[in-house]
Design a protein around this nucleic acid. Structure first.
Lengths: 142, 142
DNA sequence: CTGCCACTTGAAGTCGACTTGAGGTCAAGC
DNA sequence: GCTTGACCTCAAGTCGACTTCAAGTGGCAG
């Protein structure tokens, strides 16, 4: 595998170097040296960044990602935790589907008031039945 | 429909009154009066809160929610926007499924290194093919 | 009438994930 | 050998969504 300095890595990953430095500071990626002032990374860091981006899209915080994967990018073997996270994602996906269907319906439905449309009321009911309650946190590329 | 003061609404919705006040300040909900110092809301606000919670779970910001729905809670008729948001959700759902499958696989796979497992490499490839790139923002209940 | 307590307000603080800014440094070009 | 320009470091700022805090107030028990 090749080596990349921070500028090249930024170009290939689409991330600004400020973000790459921040990730290194957080221990999410590691540089293998310097070329002049510039950090140099192993090309394998690209895979790792893809993994991080995917995790973030799935709602994991950077700290969680740091915990889910070992320093070399391979998943840690806390199978229980992994399964719990996967289950949480299933619930999230369920909610997202409800919202998506609601939006599509709202865009298509011709009822005078959506509150009088049975489809919309069903969607609202699904919303009440899961979306309310204590706050949890995460991020998603929406 | 009945009326609820902010404390009752908080109990039924699971939201602290500080959040309810914040939502009112943002124009997401409206009180219909006071009982002493306490705000009083129409019971219909519960539906509205469910809608807001669902929207937030789907990655919309409070400002976006305020824009997507009219003051009375019925969706605005910008069908183009609604459809675009629905499409964005489809993409998000796709990514979440990839991550969920990756987690389930990581929890089950016995390969010495996940990097040598074809399934894991396929997942990583899917990650690279969509998760990298410019940041977008939103939140999800994960 | 007097306390008291839960609610009120507006301002300030928090948290995660970065970005921005000020001032320092290195390799290269002249 | 000196300037230049891109990267460096470290501190501070930003943004969204709230939460927390200090100080004020309304209604009810005594």
């Amino acid at each position: 595998m090749g080596e990349l300095d921070i500028v090249e890595l930024g170009k290939r990953s689409g991330l600004p170097s400020s973000t790459l430095r921040y990730y290194e500071e957080k221990g999410l990626i590691a540089s293998i040296g310097r070329r002049g002032l510039r950090r140099v990374f192993d090309a394998g860091v690209l895979d790792r960044l893809a993994l991080i981006a995917l995790g973030r899209a799935a709602g994991f915080s950077l700290d969680e990602m740091a915990g889910l994967f070992a320093p070399d990018g391979t998943p840690r073997i806390d199978r229980q935790l992994l399964v719990r996270k996967a289950d949480a994602l299933d619930e999230t996906i369920r909610q997202l589907r409800v919202m998506r269907d609601g939006l599509r319906h709202a865009a298509a439905c011709r009822a005078a008031s959506h509150m009088e449309c049975p489809t919309f009321r069903r969607i609202l009911k699904a919303a009440s039945a899961g979306a309310l309650g204590p706050r949890k946190r995460g991020r998603v590329v929406a």
